[in-house]
């Protein structure tokens, strides 16, 4: 294994590139369709590379106001992320430093992460009908906050445990109240973890489908639901599906690319530190 280093490396390179091509091909195809003309999309055999990159498919989305759904997604994901981060970090601090509620409480919090959305979406829907929260920002924001809280609490608990206790004690002696310690020491010290966790919280809210499908009608439709509106029985609106999907996916790709180093810890519930 070690002896044929040169050959091994080349072989691994070729394999690595092949694997990457396979995994990226669907995304490539999606992107290409979004730039194709209708003739190219419905050509047989399929066109592998469009004649010219054209943005007509995107222009239509902007003209018809379909991009509003991106805005809806943005509002809902951003506000729910901020709420979840703030409430979750408070709770995580209490658990990490005071063992509030003991192991039972920590386990209970995490177990809420495991509930399948389909199980709760039904009662929530009926509740929201009563509250008048169906098809409103607040309805989805509260729900996404709730659904993200267990994750935020779990992750932030790990990050907060890594903050040296001395920093907080020093602040206490220096004249801070508990709340000031939280705001002036814990918050800035956990900054790295906050960003990493927030990205995943945001991604979840951004990508979520079932809740949005059930709890929106037309006012606050999010972009994943909008994409499914383009599905037809026989003829799909291919160009729209592709362009809309790209609009909704590329921002997430960029956000995650910027936070590469937090990636693993973020998606493994902190099981891998680093």
């Amino acid at each position: 294994m070690r002896a044929d280093k040169g050959l091994g490396l080349t072989l691994r390179y070729v394999t690595a590139i092949a694997v990457t091509v396979v995994f990226l091909f669907p995304i490539y195809w999606l992107a290409m369709i979004s730039f194709k003309t209708p003739e190219e999309i419905f050509a047989f055999p399929p066109v592998w590379w469009p004649e010219s990159i054209q943005f007509a498919n995107y222009a239509v989305l902007f003209k018809d106001g379909d991009v509003d759904t991106i805005w809806n997604s943005m509002v809902i994901a951003t506000v729910s992320t901020v709420c979840a981060m703030f409430l979750g970090t408070m709770c995580a601090y209490s658990i990490a430093r005071f063992r509030t509620g003991g192991n039972f409480f920590a386990d209970w919090v995490l177990s809420n992460r495991m509930i399948p959305p389909i199980v709760i979406v039904f009662p929530i829907f009926l509740l929201y009908v009563q509250l008048g929260w169906v098809d409103t920002y607040v309805g989805l924001i509260v729900l996404y906050t709730a659904f993200n809280l267990p994750y935020v609490i779990w992750m932030m608990r790990g990050y907060i445990q890594d903050i040296p206790l001395e920093l907080e004690e020093s602040a206490l002696v220096d004249g801070c109240s508990r709340w000031q310690v939280f705001m002036k020491v814990v918050w800035p010290m956990a900054r790295g973890g906050l960003f990493a966790t927030a990205v995943f919280t945001f991604v979840f809210a951004w990508n979520e489908f079932i809740f949005a499908l059930v709890l929106t009608r037309s006012d606050v439709t999010t972009f994943p639901v909008q994409v499914t509106h383009y599905f037809g029985g026989q003829s799909n609106f291919w160009a729209k599906i592709a362009a809309m999907s790209m609009l909704g996916t590329v921002p997430i790709f960029i956000a995650v690319a910027l936070l590469q180093r937090f990636l693993v810890r973020g998606i493994s519930l902190g099981a891998v530190k680093g």
């Binding site: 669907p26 995304i27 195809w29 999606l30 369709i33 991604v203 951004w206 990508n207 979520e208 489908f209 994943p224 994409v227 499914t228 599905f231 799909n236 291919w238 599906i241 592709a242 999907s245 909704g248 996916t249 997430i252 790709f253 995650v256």
Partner: peptide, 14 residues
Amino acid sequence: ITSPIIAGATWRLL
């Protein structure tokens, strides 16, 4: 990190 529904849509096209 792609939305699962978008992933599904993409495969529908594929």
